[in-house]
Computed example of a mutant assay.
Amino acid sequence: MTPLLRRVLTALLLLAVFVPAVLWAPAWLWAALMAGMIGMAAYEWARLSHFPPLSARAYAGLLTLCALVLPPLLAADWPAYQTALIVLAVGFWLVAAPLWLLGRWHATQPFIRAVVGVVVLLPTWAALLYLHARGPGILLGVMAIVWIADTAAFFSGRHFGRRKLAPAISPGKTWEGVAGAFVALALYASALSLLAGMPLLWLLLMVSGLLYLSVLGDLFESWIKRVSGMKDSGDMLPGHGGVLDRIDALTATLPVATGMLMWLEHAA
C-alpha cells in the first residue's frame, strides 16, 4: 500500500467515525469522546516534550480528567470558564505563537511545556463543545475549512510546490500549497455564500484568516517536533502520524473561530 493510499484510507475511516458522532452523538457522549481525544493528544504532547513515561501518562490523565469533570463541576459557572479558555487561546495564537516561531524559541523546560500544552489543548476541547452545542452544521462548517485547506495544500504542494514556506521549521510546506488552499477555500466560501445567503466578502475574509491560523497551528507543531527531534507526534494514525499531527491546525482555528462566534452572538 502506497503512503498516499494509506493516508487517504485513514482519513476516510476517521470521517466515517467522526461525522456520525458530530451528527448524532448526545452532548454527554460527545464530551466524553472529545475528552478522550484531548487525552491522547496530551500524551503525545508530553512525549514531544520528553516527559518521563510516568509523567507523560499522568499529564494526559490530568487533562482528560479536567475535560470530563469541569463542565458538570462548574455547572452554571462553566460558560464563563469556557469563554476564558477561548480568550486565552486567542491571545496565544494571535500573539504568542507567531512570536514563538519568529524567535525560534525552544522552551524545553517541563513546566513551560506543560503550561503550553494546556493552553493549546484545553481551549480546543472547549471550542469543540461550544460549536457542537451550536449545531453540527456549524462545527462541520468550521472544521471543513481546515480539511479543505489541508487537502488542497497537500496536493497543490505535491504537484506545484517549488518555493518553501518556512524551510527552517517545516521543509515540506510551500507557498504553492498555501495558494492552492486559498483557491479551494475561496470556492468553498462562494458555495457557502450561495447556499446560506451570506456576504461573500465577509466569508472570504473569514476563511483567509482561518487559513492563516491553520498554517500557523501546523507550523507550530512542526517546530515543536523539530526541537524535540521527532518526525511525528505518534503512530496511531497510519499515513498521518499521531492524533496531535491530525489536529494541529484545529488547535489554532477552532478556538479563534469560536471566539468570533461568541463575539457575534454577544453583539447580536
Rank of each mutant, 00 (worst) to 15 (best):
L211S: 06
A133K: 04
I169A: 02
H159R: 10
R113S: 08
M143A: 11
P3I: 14
L165H: 00
L264H: 14
M143C: 07
A41W: 02
S190H: 06
S208R: 07
W125M: 12
A153C: 05
F160N: 01
L12A: 12
P20V: 10
G241A: 03
T174V: 04
P199M: 06
P171N: 14
I86M: 00
R57V: 10
T10S: 15
W105V: 08
S208N: 07
D77I: 05
M262V: 05
M206T: 15
A25K: 04
S208I: 09
A76F: 09
H240K: 04
S233Y: 12
T258H: 08
P53E: 14
W93P: 00
T251N: 09
T251P: 08
A181F: 01
T253P: 06
V116S: 12
L23V: 14
V69C: 13
L68H: 09
L185N: 01
T10N: 13
V8F: 12
G39W: 03
A191P: 13
A184Y: 05
P167F: 10
G180E: 02
R113D: 01
A97Y: 00
W30K: 01
T253V: 15
Y81M: 13
Q82R: 13
W100K: 00
A58P: 15
G61Y: 10
P110L: 09
L261H: 12
L9Y: 09
I169N: 01
R158A: 00
G177D: 02
L219M: 06
H266I: 08
F154K: 06
V183T: 14
E221P: 02
V119M: 15
A179K: 03
P79S: 04
F92S: 09
R162E: 02
A127P: 06
Y43M: 08
W28K: 13
A126G: 14
G177H: 01
V119E: 15
L254K: 13
S228P: 05
V69N: 14
V146M: 09
R104S: 08
I224K: 02
A166M: 05
V207R: 06
S55Q: 11
T251K: 13
P72Y: 06
M260D: 06
R47N: 11
W175T: 00
T108C: 03
L12K: 08
V87T: 10
S170E: 01
T251L: 05
A80W: 11
W45H: 03
A252H: 05
A126M: 10
P72R: 10
A46Q: 04
L62E: 08
S55W: 08
T10H: 11
H50M: 06
E44W: 01
E44R: 11
L140Q: 07
L201A: 11
M260W: 15
A133S: 14
Y212A: 10
G259N: 06
P136R: 10
D77V: 11
P53M: 09
A181Q: 01
K231N: 05
L131P: 01
L165I: 00
L5I: 07
L14F: 12
T2L: 07
D218I: 04
M230V: 12
G157L: 00
P26Y: 07
V207I: 11
M260Y: 15
G172L: 11
F182D: 03
W28M: 12
P123V: 07
